[in-house]
């Protein structure tokens, strides 16, 4: 019975989370222009409940990596990700953030997922605003289905904890 209540409660919480993603825009390059147009009234990301850019990672649960990530930025990106509260989600915006894009050289990181996990990748250089909205809807589905990377990680950690408790009890 208790399990039923907590699962239902979590569903309700995830329904809430899905429509109130607070994004932290980690904007480093030209993709930022397209990010602005998604946020501006014409495409208006606010229609999907993700209109609030938070400039502190501690107050946000969606990390938007917008633009090229260099090797030098790696430690900063990891630190920002670590500072965000669980559960959290990550979108790689544009090919640079997803794979390094056309950069194949000494300075560009071949995708932000070299340093932190990513939930949704948006291709395009830069992606069209429609693609970004599509990615956001995909991400909302994942939030509701509870298979964002940090939700899965929490679930794994819970299972491991329960198993070790059960072992101790034996």
């Amino acid at each position: 019975m208790l399990e039923l209540v907590t699962t239902k409660l979590e569903d309700v919480a995830n329904w809430g989370r899905k429509f109130s993603l607070f994004s932290y825009p980690f904007v480093t390059a030209c993709c930022g222009m397209e990010f602005m147009s998604v946020a501006a009234p014409k495409y208006d990301i606010a229609r999907f409940g993700a209109e609030f850019p938070r400039f502190s990672p501690r107050q946000s649960d969606l990390l938007m990596i917008v633009g090229t990530i260099t090797e030098k930025q790696g430690p900063a990106l990891k630190r920002i990700y670590d500072q965000m509260a669980e559960p959290k989600w990550v979108i790689a915006f544009g090919v640079c953030a997803s794979t390094g894009g056309f950069y194949q050289n000494y300075h560009a990181m071949p995708g932000a997922d070299q340093v932190i996990p990513v939930d949704v990748y948006i291709p395009g250089c830069p992606p069209r605003p429609e693609q970004v909205l599509d990615a956001l809807i995909l991400l909302q589905d994942r939030v509701a289905r509870k298979d964002g990377h940090s939700q899965l990680r929490l679930k794994r950690e819970k299972i491991v904890l329960e198993q070790s408790r059960a072992l101790e009890d034996d």
Partner: peptide
């Protein structure tokens, strides 16, 4: 020094990587 012509053109020198990769 990466712009020297004898620097391997795709050689990266990462500072951090995910531990699970």
């Amino acid at each position: 020094h990466p712009l020297r012509k004898d620097y391997p053109k795709e050689k990266r020198q990462p500072l951090v990587r995910r531990s699970d990769l």
